[in-house]
Design a protein around this nucleic acid. Sequence first.
DNA 1: CCCGGAGTAGAAAGCGCTTACTACGGTGTG
DNA 2: CACACCGTAGTAAGCGCTTTCTACTCCGGG
Lengths: 393, 393
Amino acid sequence: MAVTLADVAARAGVSAATVSRVLNGNYPVAGTTRSRVLRAVEELEYVVNGPASSLAAATSDLIGVLVNDIADPFFGIIAGGVQSRIAPVDAPDGRGRKLAVVCTTGGSPEQELTYLTLLQRQRAAAVILTGGAVEDPAHQAALAAALRRIERAGARVVLCGRPPLTPPVAGDEGGTEGEAPEADTAVAPDGTEVPLPRAVDLPHPACLAFDNRGGARALTEHLISLGHREIGYLAGPAERTTTRHRLEGHRAALDAAGLTDGAGDRVVHGRFDRDSGYGGARELLRRFPGLTAIAAANDTVALGACAALREAGLRVPEDVSVTGFDDLPFAAEAAPALTTARLPLHEAGARAGLLALGVEEPPPGGVTVVGTELRVRASTAPPPSGPRPARAG
Amino acid sequence: MAVTLADVAARAGVSAATVSRVLNGNYPVAGTTRSRVLRAVEELEYVVNGPASSLAAATSDLIGVLVNDIADPFFGIIAGGVQSRIAPVDAPDGRGRKLAVVCTTGGSPEQELTYLTLLQRQRAAAVILTGGAVEDPAHQAALAAALRRIERAGARVVLCGRPPLTPPVAGDEGGTEGEAPEADTAVAPDGTEVPLPRAVDLPHPACLAFDNRGGARALTEHLISLGHREIGYLAGPAERTTTRHRLEGHRAALDAAGLTDGAGDRVVHGRFDRDSGYGGARELLRRFPGLTAIAAANDTVALGACAALREAGLRVPEDVSVTGFDDLPFAAEAAPALTTARLPLHEAGARAGLLALGVEEPPPGGVTVVGTELRVRASTAPPPSGPRPARAG
DNA sequence: CCCGGAGTAGAAAGCGCTTACTACGGTGTG
DNA sequence: CACACCGTAGTAAGCGCTTTCTACTCCGGG
């Protein structure tokens, strides 16, 4: 029914092999033959049959991108970064251009696994996993197994915005990998040396790990430097690595300032959305009436918190300071503009795209730490009573 | 190298045909055989070769989604809506799940055509085009031709958020289609009857047309009803249908109120981004110092305008009212919260997904008008001097 | 007891492409 | 002048799956 290679070949008076070679340009073809073939292609409006081509060549032009929610700008921006590299707009025609298969997992490990299988089935050339991981060891193990299977099938695997996989409890692969998983260290953007776990599970790991700890720590340190002593924290879902790392950074800042409260953390867990910020802030206010600042798990949560504060008759930042995380575009436009930690999401996505294409090689160990940058804006200020000396020794 | 159907068949002691039938479930297989096959599949970790399957069955599980920019929540939300239907999370395993190939076109017709070819090559089951179209007749014709080719290749075509294709100047298809392209009418959400052009170019059109005219008109009417008489308009790129339709709605409201100024429109064209809003608002202020309201092409532009106004020492809405369009999530969180026209983007995307799957049939004529809903928030108020009667007769 | 029809499974012919491998002029060299 | 070799192009064997057609077994009814 559709036009095939053979039709083009017949029209051009050559063999199918020649047409294929002209189209793929990986074999010398005489100029006159080439132009005759190209004319036939034009005239017949021939379009290659991708599946057939993928079957024969055992490759495909698809790159899977797993995201929690494509409607969330956090992931949209990463996906945009990926696309900018795997399908540059200036590429002539569509030659060599890869297609992004965007899979919305809702952050569920089961969905991740399902999509991973689906992508393997499509013989995707690469798979990019974004978003924090769920910490459940069983899930980690299942995920590692799925990724190993995918790599074995010839696809590249890139982790973007999530830490390397945690090592499996038992070496169920027979231990044929030679490399011992020593803990490396890396220098974080703020100059401190941080332990760098290696993506030990994957033969060919490529991992862009966001420095969530460092960013959160910088934000809370900023609050402390403004004079805040009672700082609430609106954490994300407890089971996510991102949540844990940001919370760790927050606590590290508190610890370093000697602000660890005997009464326990001023932390409320929720999700990464606005409503969680709203509800969480209300709960924080109720439980810790003396709060002068709230650090939120991300910008969206921070916005919800601001709304709750306003509703409670509190001004931001005059009465309560608020910080976000990520620096999504709306953070700068919010009222007040959010103090936050900028994550270069587009750049990270672009880098992930390059790693997925194999254009760029991951560093030894596979892990690159993507740093954050503190963005001080209008949502933070000294506490109402002005800076006061810390009472704790 | 990889596990194939034949391997599974051998292990289960059946023929490849039987394995295929078990996996596809479209042919009766005895229970015992089925479970033997499934066990072999499990044991060998067999994953179907998608390209091979697509080649043999002449179908694929891919659905193309063309967007201007996936990092823009406008498109992200539509894409999310699409995904919610083509890959519902509650679907068992991954059975019957389609994959979304998201293609970022930057709004360029050339990129659209390139991606359309790439998707046709992948033998995508359907293609969803989002975002307004460029009005250039040459592009429209080329696009129509490409879409017709895609339909002929067996894929469904869905237009989401753009008007039906304009008819080609010449009937280059030989006029074999029986249907005469009569102009239908439809009842818009506000009760008025609007002309409804048919997607005459496509044999099987499915088009979700956003009511940009109606939404823009409602916004400007709202401003007029508050007492505004000098209303600036920050339009999008002149060549886009979306821009034109929103501008038409704006002007219709002005006309109806007798506010059409002999001095010409208070309109500045730009893009659909924040910087355009910022720069455009500055220009509007310079050229029309008496403005008391600015209607923006969309929420993002409105935000930029708000920033420019603030910078100029003008308060929103006390000195100048501002309206957006789309009602993206951040619109409600902005300061002040934006008065805007809500477009049900997620729902539209979901609907597009259903149309793409063929689960839902388009109405006769193919065009469904997606209405907007006025959202009055804090960015609009009566003009500084208070409501005054219109002077014009 | 024989035959027809379910019900189930296998054989085999592709689907349209890629890619060894082979073939065949034409040129340069010993 | 024969030989080798390069530059091109054709032949044909798959790639792994779906699906039609055929075949076999087992029943129940005549």
